[in-house]
Amino acid sequence: MLIPHPLLGLRDAQEFSYLGDASLLLRPDGMAENAAETFFPYVYLRENPAGLHRELWFHEQGDRSWLVVTRNTVTHEILGAELAGDVVARNRASRDGGDLA
């Protein structure tokens, strides 16, 4: 597979290591009262879609960026890749804007 690194262009997937669903970006607050309830699905439950999947890849043999890659799990087609940091920033902006309230 080839991953379209947003800074480095197409890179062989062999340079990366894979973590899993990009929902792992949304770590709950460990000090919240309901932390036990929020951490269980965060750590253990997955949508596991047959189709588009947003997922985390680490450019371990490269620039050490964590990427969010959008990939079809049925065809392996990759629709895009972003720096995970950018995705987090966008998530937060939209949350702060009230979209995800």
Binding site: R46, N48, A50, T73
Partner: peptide, 19 residues
């Protein structure tokens, strides 16, 4: 490997499973 797909039809779309 089709567990998530099938169980989603029963409303159990989130399971401790990846394919």
């Amino acid at each position: 490997g089709s567990t998530s797909r099938v169980m989603a039809q029963a409303g159990m779309g989130q399971l401790p499973i990846e394919s």
